[in-house]
Write a protein that binds this DNA or RNA. Structure first.
Lengths: 221, 221
DNA sequence: CACGGGATGCACTGGTGAGTGCAATTGTTG
DNA sequence: CAACAATTGCACTCACCAGTGCATCCCGTG
């Protein structure tokens, strides 16, 4: 009955993977309290009892899935940064492409961002250790990882700032965060053209703030 | 046993007010699914049966409280705009004072913002009509209400932009939203000095973007 | 003082869900 | 084939909670 590949290959023992994927889906869709282990088991094609062979209980399962998701997104963003920001051809174009891809991830991984909303709702009930891992591994750490790239770009004279982390946070704020908030973290997706306009204008604003006064900045909004 | 003032004075019939306040607290603290009407009744010093005399059920109660809260915040923001943005003395100072007060509201009304987190989590399950009322009455409408004030300021030549709503959204993005996101919507409050720094620098960035090139802009971050 | 409406306490129904125990089954490995 | 571990199905306990019905009580009003 299991998929096709036996559990021979590396990675998680097959069942565990199915459980964690189903859990991410269900927790995202239903929230923590509503989500039931029976449903998760059903969607994973697994006996409820099996879940308890892999996880201590509901809470443990949720936390595990949350951290996994955070790491996955962090990794995805890292790839995007490598792709768009390693070699700069046209700074404005590259930044827009990067931020757009990043914003699109919101609508392309609805499971994960549904989970993000759930985590926000549960934040006050989360164990401190988990909250720390979340802020360290998850979305909140995005601008920390962006900072070195901006620093390198600044070293080449294409940007100008004192504090790379603040600049990174500002870019985030002007683009991704704006889209995130206005779309309720992806729950009510913005129309594609609106996303593009928001990102483009956000990047342009960022460049007006941080580009050295050499190349003429583009027009105002 | 009820408080002191009889239900003689205007406003809601006393009990109803107690219920709605307790409901806001409990829904905010526990989330929708966890919150139990027994607990709400207990915290309101009211019999559970009484809740059903005023509200059709749990869902109705939640929605009612949510909309009430949204209206309250909208009103509070309106007052702040009147206080700080009606008569401009020093634009930078006034904007900072306004945004600071606005941001402080997050930490001063934890009940409400806890509710906001809950609503985010429930957004996908909310009836369309309620979601519309929320976006129209609640936080998302803040920049719409801010726009006319900025427009008046621009008419006096202190700001320069084509689209007042976009400018308003940008100010929001650079100040309040930044604080909101970084504090998990008030769940993990930022230290006061950090809030001040964030707001100040956000306003300064806003002015660099939208102030006409007359008065020398302040220093970069 | 009699009346009536809201408030109260309480018991009860029906439903759901976390977590467990166990015996039977399946797949893997030597 | 035999031993072993993971998986499964299922029944069961315990707890919680939305919503209801009802008899009682407390209140201000006429």
């Amino acid at each position: 009955m299991p998929g096709a590949v036996p559990s021979a290959s590396g990675g998680l023992p097959d069942k565990r993977r199915a459980i964690s994927q189903a859990a991410r889906r269900v927790f995202g869709r239903e929230g923590y309290a509503r989500a039931s282990l029976d449903v998760i088991a059903a969607e994973a094609n697994v006996a409820k009892r099996t879940i308890y062979n892999h996880y201590a209980g509901k809470e443990q399962l949720f936390l595990s899935v949350a951290i996994e998701g955070a790491d996955a997104v962090t990794e995805a963003v890292r790839v995007l940064m490598e792709r768009h920001l390693r070699k700069i051809v046209d700074l404005e174009e590259d930044l827009i492409a990067f931020c757009l891809d990043r914003a699109k991830a919101v609508t392309e991984f609805p499971d994960h961002f549904a989970l993000v909303r759930t985590i926000h709702a549960e934040v006050t009930r989360l164990p401190d250790a988990v909250l720390e891992r979340w802020t360290a591994h998850g979305p909140p750490s995005a601008h920390k990882r962006l900072a070195p790239y901006l620093q390198k770009i600044a070293d080449r004279g294409l940007l100008e700032f004192d504090d790379a982390e603040k600049a990174a946070n500002r870019l985030n704020t002007l683009t991704t965060n704006d889209v995130l908030i206005r779309s309720f973290y992806g729950a009510v997706p913005l129309p594609e053209p609106v996303v593009e306009e928001t990102i483009t204008e956000g990047v342009q604003a960022f460049l007006r703030l941080y580009a050295p006064p050499s190349a003429a900045p583009h027009q105002q909004n």
